[in-house]
Structures are given as C-alpha cells and as structure tokens.
C-alpha cells in the first residue's frame, strides 16, 4: 500500500524517457531556428557591407544602371548599379507567371471539372514528374532548343529575357498547376451542384462560382510559382546571356540577380567591394523571398473558404 503511494510520488522510467524525448525533439527544433536566424543574419550582414563598409549609396545601388564594381564613376563612387539585374529578374518572373497562369488554370480545370477521370489519370503523374525535373535539365533544354530557336527567328545570340521567360514558364507551369488543382478541389462540391442546379452553364459555373471561390488559393499558387521563378538560378543563368546590361528588348543578353551571383561569386575575393556587392544582390533575393512569403500569408489569411 505504502509502496504504491511512494511510486506515485516519485519519477519512474517513463518520466525519464519523456525528458529524453523532450530534450531530443527540442534540440532539433532549436537547431532549425538557429539555422534560419543565422542564414538571415549572415546574408544580411554581408549584404549591408556594401553600404556600411564601402559607403555605396543605397539609392544609387538600386537605381544605377552600370555594374562594374572594379571601377569608379565620375563622382568617385564605385559603379554598382543593380537596376538591370533587378529589372531582368522581375521581368522574367512576371512574364513567366503571366504566361503560365492561364495554361495552369486551364489544365487544372480540365483535371478537376472537364475530364476529371482521364485528365487526372494521365496528367497528374506527368505533372508530378515535371515538378521533380531538376532545373539544370530545364536549363540544358533551354540552351539547346529555346536559345537556337530564338536566334533563328530574331537573330542575335538568342539568349535574353525571352529565353529566360520560356524556360521559367515551363518550370513553373507544373508547380502552379498542381497547386491550382488543390485550390479547385478544395471548393466544396455543393458550390458546383448548386450553381448547375440553378441552370448555369458549366462555363458560368466555372467563371462565376468556381474561380471566385478558389481565387485566394489560385493567387497563392501563382505567387508560389513567381517565388520559384525569382529564385531560380542555374536554369536562367544558362539562357539569359549573363551580360549586365539594361534590357531594352527581350532578345538581347542580360543578367538576373541569381545569374550574376552564380557566375561571379567564385571570381571575387571575400571582403572586397565586388564581392560585397554580390552579397547585396543575395540580400535582395532573400528579402524578395520574404516578401513573397508575406504575400502568401496575407492572401491565405484573408481568403479561407468559409463553408
């Protein structure tokens, strides 16, 4: 009797096990938090060195069109104008998303509402496979197929925003499609049946009911695609031309933030201005991915389907 009372009041094997378990899982989660914080910290501290150590004017960095970190301009300031890369990065991202969205939504509608059986059976595995194709493979196909084709039609080298856009379009299409399928499947079936029962045609149902109900998640899908396109490095680097020039049309060589980083970070010396300036580009990438993240959260919070 007393023995049981004593056992009730003292720790046992089970309570020790539980402490072990807590320590293990808390340690893992702490490692992830430390990791994220140190990524943010290291990239940021390197990225701001251009402005704090090398005293480059932030506005000139963002609006300058000349990227030549080794030389000084007329004002004695180094030429680190990131605008061409910022413009190119945004151009390829937005163009690829604009191009991919209608296709992605059409395919998603086809899979969910027009031919759910055959469409899903055939398209679903293919799209899953395409999501998994490594980006260098996309880049390689861009280099061997898209660039020569553009060269053939428009002349010049063939590399540039158009080639980048086409490669990214193909890359983000499966991503946006599979998220759009999820979005449309999340619309409750009674939305559809109610609309059809009221005599609406399928198109009216799709346009007025389905797309509206799924709109927030469709937007999220597009933003996800854009985030992927914006951060994509190698595939774009292979077809963009890698010349830091302000893009004036879609078929001349230029550079994105990512392509500039991958091409040059190994050719500069740590701690020098040319190197710091590259880290500033990485910082822009980091900040943009946070912005995409925030947008997705904002849309997600506002647009939950209430049923």
């Amino acid at each position: 009797m007393d023995d049981i009372q004593k056992k009730l009041m003292s720790p046992s094997k089970a309570s020790r096990e539980d402490i072990t378990g807590r320590i293990i899982s808390y340690t893992c989660i702490a490692a992830i938090i430390i990791l994220v914080i140190s990524i943010l910290y290291f990239i940021t501290s390197r990225g701001v060195a251009t402005f704090t150590t090398n005293h480059v004017n932030l506005w000139q960095f963002l609006s300058g069109e000349e990227w030549n970190p080794g030389t000084l301009n007329d004002h004695g300031q180094p030429q680190v104008g990131a605008l061409p890369m910022i413009v190119t990065s945004f151009s390829v991202t937005i163009l690829a998303a604009l191009l991919a969205t209608p296709f992605a939504i059409a395919v998603a509608l086809f899979m969910t509402d027009i031919a759910p059986k055959n469409g899903a059976k055939f398209l679903q595995p293919v799209i899953e496979l395409l999501v998994g194709i490594p980006s260098v493979v996309y880049g390689f196909i861009g280099l061997t197929v898209v660039v020569p084709a553009i060269r053939h039609i428009f002349g010049g080298t063939g590399s540039g925003i158009l080639a980048g856009t086409i490669v990214l379009f193909v890359m983000v299409l499966p991503t946006i499609t599979s998220l759009a399928v999820d979005a449309l499947r999340a619309v409750p079936a009674y939305f559809r049946s109610a609309s059809l029962a009221l005599g609406a045609t399928r198109f009216q149902t799709i346009y007025k009911v389905l797309l509206r109900a799924a709109m927030p998640r469709l937007l999220t899908a597009v933003i996800f695609g854009m985030a992927r396109a914006f951060g994509e490095a190698l595939a774009v680097q292979m077809v963009i031309g890698n010349a830091v020039l302000m893009p004036h049309n879609l078929v001349t060589p230029t550079a994105t933030l990512t392509s500039q980083l991958t091409t040059n970070i190994g050719n500069t010396i740590m701690g020098t201005l040319p190197n710091n300036a590259l880290w500033s580009l990485a910082l822009i990438l980091l900040l943009m991915s946070l912005v995409f993240n925030l947008i997705i959260r904002y849309i997600g919070k506002r647009g939950e389907i209430k049923s």
Binding site: I32, I39, A227, G231, I265, S289
Partner: peptide, 25 residues
C-alpha cells in the same frame, strides 16, 4: 507560430541563397 514561420521562410529561400550561406559559413 514562430517555428512554423521559420520553417516556411527556410523553404521559400532560393536554393542559391542557401548554397551561398553554406559557402560563407
């Protein structure tokens, strides 16, 4: 919530940025 945000941020980072961080550290 903070942990989930951290993991989301990590997953949305471009792989080139992750690679550069690895390079740096």
């Amino acid at each position: 919530g903070l942990i989930r945000t951290a993991i989301e941020v990590l997953s949305s980072l471009p792989s080139v940025v992750v690679g550069l961080f690895g390079y740096l550290l």
